Computed example of a mutant assay.
Amino acid sequence: MTARTPASGGAPIIDADGIGRTFTRSEGPLFRRRRRTVTAVRDVSFQVTAGEIVGYLGPNGAGKSTTMKMLTGILSPSAGRLRVTGLEPSRQRTRLAARMGVVFGQRTTLWWDLPLRDSLALTRHMYRVPARDHARRLAELTELLELGPFLATPVRQLSLGQRMRGDLTAALLHDPALLVLDEPTIGLDVVSKSTIREFLLRLNAERGTTILLTTHDLGDVERLCRRVIVIDHGSLAFDGDLAALRDGAPSPRTLVVDLAAPSEPIEVPGARTVRVRGTRQWLELDGNPAAVIADVSHHYAIADLTLNEPDIEDVVARLYRREGAARELSAG
Rank of each mutant, 00 (worst) to 15 (best):
L242N: 06
V44S: 09
A152T: 15
V256K: 02
G248M: 10
W282R: 15
T72D: 05
L178G: 08
S235M: 13
G18R: 12
E146M: 11
P154N: 01
T215R: 03
T210R: 05
R227Q: 12
D311H: 13
L203Y: 01
L201Y: 05
A50T: 04
R81Q: 11
L329W: 13
P115M: 08
Y300M: 02
L242C: 05
P265F: 12
L329A: 15
L285N: 00
E309H: 02
A131V: 14
S251A: 15
H216K: 05
I74E: 11
T210E: 03
H233C: 00
E27I: 11
P77I: 05
G105Y: 04
F238R: 03
D311G: 15
T123S: 07
T306A: 13
A170H: 01
D118L: 08
T49Y: 12
D175A: 14
L236Q: 00
A50V: 03
I196N: 01
T109C: 11
T185M: 02
I186A: 09
D43R: 03
P289W: 06
E328C: 02
M126I: 12
S159Q: 05
R280M: 10
G73Y: 08
L147M: 10
P12T: 02
D175M: 09
L283I: 05
K64N: 08
T24V: 13
T195W: 04
V129P: 12
A243Q: 14
V155F: 01
T22E: 13
L218Q: 07
T185N: 11
L283M: 02
R327C: 07
D304C: 01
V228F: 11
P252V: 01
G73T: 10
R35G: 09
S194E: 15
P59N: 09
F46R: 11
V103F: 12
R163A: 10
A97C: 01
L30S: 03
L71H: 06
E323P: 00
I19Y: 07
L259S: 04
I53R: 02
S194Q: 15
D133P: 03
L178R: 02
P269F: 03
A62L: 11
L259K: 06
R32Q: 13
V38E: 14
T22S: 13
K193D: 00
I14D: 00
P6I: 01
P6W: 10
R322T: 12
L201A: 13
V268L: 06
A290W: 04
A303Y: 02
R197A: 11
D232E: 15
G28Y: 11
D167R: 00
G278T: 07
T214C: 15
E206T: 14
T37N: 06
H174T: 06
L236N: 11
E146T: 13
D118K: 10
I74Y: 08
R223F: 12
I229T: 07
